[in-house]
Amino acid sequence: MPEGHCFRYAAGPITLEPHAPEAVDTAERLEGRWLYGGLLYGHFGHFLCETTSRLWALDHVGEVDGIVFLPKNQMTHERRHFRHHLPFFAAMGLTEDRFQIRAPQAPVVIEELALAEPGFGIGDMIEGRPDFRAFMQANLGRDVGPDGPENIYISRSQLPSKRGSVLLETLIEKRMEDAGYTVFHPQNHDLAVQIATYKAARRIVSLDASSLHLAAMIISPETRVAILNRGPTNNIDDYIAQFTRWQGRAPTRIEAVKGVWYPEGRRLKKRETHATLDLPLVCKALVAGGFLPKGTTWRAPTDAQLNSAVAAMSDRMGQPLQFLSGKK
């Protein structure tokens, strides 16, 4: 059915029309009423934007026994697809004691399946349909109160090097800490702590990062957000659009990329680059946006600091790096 297709871009679905499976006499039968969830992603950012996109329909389709997803990959045990996402479903009130999650690895027969349009996604779908925004804002972390510092800097410095980031982010962290910010590494905290921290924050400064999708869903309308572009992708556009729609105002956008580093002799993969930022320009933009006190200035890193950072990243990636100037 066309309603079962999954979308990422406006050009067309990312799913294919399937061939009918061969009749299987021993096919598992899922009794009851189920919501079709679309494609189940392991990556948290894609999970938030694409796997959750049909949950809004739970407000409209009546009682269901659970959600059945298409598994993105084949695994021996289907629970491996979603066990790390169970805290998210629990944070929505969809706990395992009353709500089943399935990602079948073989054909199943479902007694009744409710199909709904995706209400959220990346690119053209990042703002979310009103039903989806209302559902998430009413349910996500509904039992979690605000708990954390008022000023946070969301860091990528402890993520694997292949994820891409900026060089010398620890220098940015130090300067933000000097200004009274707490450095926050989302991946080091469980979902409840992340939700509580974002709810408590009144100023958030971050590189463009998938953790911002969660923050945009739950922060206070009064919270001020600044996002630093970290490279040659256009991912920052999604975060700006999401916050603008969900929060009712645009975040401060900071463009300060001087160039990017990537493995020598290889094709540039935009998501895996490490940028150098114009730190005095970053500081100027943060002061202008009210994120740093007036009169605050940042010095540019020395050549020795930059060379050391490039060498360290080269060691982490196991190959020399080359530089591409400007935002391409």
Rank of each mutant, 00 (worst) to 15 (best):
M1C: 11
C6W: 14
Y9A: 14
G12M: 12
T15K: 08
L16F: 08
E17R: 14
H19G: 05
P21N: 10
P21D: 06
E22W: 02
A23K: 07
V24F: 02
T26R: 13
R29D: 02
E31R: 12
G32R: 09
W34M: 13
L35E: 11
Y36N: 03
Y41Q: 06
H43R: 14
F47S: 09
L55S: 09
L55M: 11
L55E: 07
W56V: 05
A57T: 10
H60Q: 14
G62V: 03
V64H: 08
D65E: 14
I67K: 03
I67H: 07
V68L: 05
P71E: 13
N73S: 10
E78A: 09
R79V: 12
R80N: 10
R80S: 10
R83M: 10
H85R: 15
L86D: 10
P87N: 07
F88G: 03
G93V: 01
G93C: 02
D97M: 03
D97G: 11
F99N: 08
A103D: 14
Q105G: 13
V108I: 15
A114S: 10
L115I: 15
L115S: 12
E117P: 09
I122H: 03
D124T: 04
M125P: 00
I126C: 07
E127I: 10
G128T: 07
P130E: 08
R133A: 11
R133T: 14
Q137L: 08
Q137M: 12
D143W: 09
G145W: 01
G148T: 13
N151P: 01
Q158H: 10
R163F: 12
G164M: 09
S165Q: 05
V166C: 13
E173K: 00
M176H: 03
D178C: 05
V193S: 07
A196V: 14
Y198E: 09
R202L: 06
R203N: 12
V205T: 04
S206A: 15
L207Y: 02
S210Q: 06
S211N: 09
S211L: 02
A215I: 02
R224K: 15
A226C: 11
N229G: 14
G231L: 05
N234F: 05
N234D: 03
N234W: 01
I236V: 11
D238H: 12
Q242R: 09
F243E: 04
T244L: 01
R249F: 06
T252N: 04
T252M: 07
T252G: 02
R253N: 06
A256V: 15
K258L: 15
Y262C: 05
P263C: 06
E264H: 13
K269P: 00
R271A: 13
R271P: 04
A275I: 02
T276E: 12
L277R: 01
L277I: 15
L277K: 03
D278I: 04
P280C: 01
P280L: 00
P280R: 03
A288G: 07
L292M: 09
K294I: 01
G295K: 04
R299H: 08
P301A: 07
T302N: 06
N307F: 02
N307I: 01
S308T: 14
A309I: 13
V310G: 07
M313R: 10
S314N: 09
D315N: 04
R316V: 02
R316K: 11
F323N: 07
S325W: 03
